[in-house]
Simulated scan of single mutants.
Amino acid sequence: MAKSSAPSRERIVAGAADMISRRGLSATSIRDLAKHAKAPLGSTYHYFPEGKQQLVTEAVRYAGGAVARILRAELKAGPVAGVRAFLGLWRGIVVESDFRAGCPVLAVSVEEPPLDEVSPALTAAAEAFEGWERLLAESLREHGVTRDRAEGLAALIVASVEGATAMCRAKRSAQPLDQVAQQLEELIVGAIDRPA
């Protein structure tokens, strides 16, 4: 969550991302989100006049952007280092929260949108996943992996990390992320060594 000295709007968005990562989308009301962010309910409606959907969408964008910034910085050292950092980020979140928190982007993704429309929050979640995949694929391509293989491997990395994060919460153990880390690192090294 953002520091309490952060602007009220940012604190509310960060608090919403944190709460969604812990309780999911359906189990959080706008009142709960404001309380979790230590913000007045009136401020929440002032900043997010469209209500919960607008706040959730911004929380997903916030979380997706925060992860992308970390991933972008770590990928400068190469795809193996980037994936280690990506896995380390999620491992830290689940372990430090005593397996109570996961990924808010995933939490929103698994909630059912209305059948007649795609929610803006679900669209933001798809954009976050695509952004992470794009960063990983670009790094892999920079290290000699073909475009198709890099894109496939990037999707596998994101899907594996997100799934392992959920498994960690269910099992109350970091073992799934640790196992996935080892396998992904071997796949990345193999793809770089044999890019064809």
Rank of each mutant, 00 (worst) to 15 (best):
V67M: 12
V108I: 11
W90M: 12
C103I: 13
Q54N: 14
A68K: 12
V80M: 06
E130D: 11
V56S: 07
S97N: 04
V94E: 02
R84L: 13
E117D: 06
W132V: 03
Q53D: 09
Q53K: 10
G82F: 11
F99W: 01
D98R: 10
I70G: 14
D98L: 08
G65F: 09
S119L: 05
P113V: 01
A128C: 04
P120G: 03
V67R: 12
G78K: 14
E58F: 03
E127L: 12
A63E: 13
W90K: 02
I70M: 15
A85Q: 14
A85F: 15
G131K: 00
G131E: 10
G88Y: 15
E74L: 08
A81P: 15
V118E: 00
A124M: 00
E130V: 05
I93G: 03
E127D: 07
L122Y: 01
E58P: 03
A128M: 03
E112F: 04
T57R: 09
L106H: 11
E96T: 10
A59K: 07
A101E: 11
A107Q: 07
E58N: 01
Q54Y: 14
V118G: 00
L87I: 08
A66N: 03
L71M: 05
A107H: 04
R69S: 08
A77S: 15
D98K: 12
V94T: 10
E130W: 00
E111S: 14
D116V: 02
G82S: 12
A59E: 02
A73F: 12
R84W: 09
A85R: 15
E112V: 09
A85T: 15
P79V: 06
A81Q: 15
W90P: 03
F129W: 04
L55A: 07
L71R: 00
V94Y: 04
P120Q: 07
G78T: 12
L122R: 09
L115F: 08
A63T: 11
A73P: 14
I70C: 12
A126V: 05
F86Q: 14
L106N: 08
R100F: 08
V80H: 05
A125E: 03
V80I: 05
Y62I: 05
E112N: 13
L71I: 00
V105K: 08
G88V: 15
E133W: 06
E117N: 05
F86Y: 15
S109F: 02
E133A: 05
D98C: 07
W90G: 02
T123I: 06
P79E: 06
I93S: 05
V67T: 10
E130F: 01
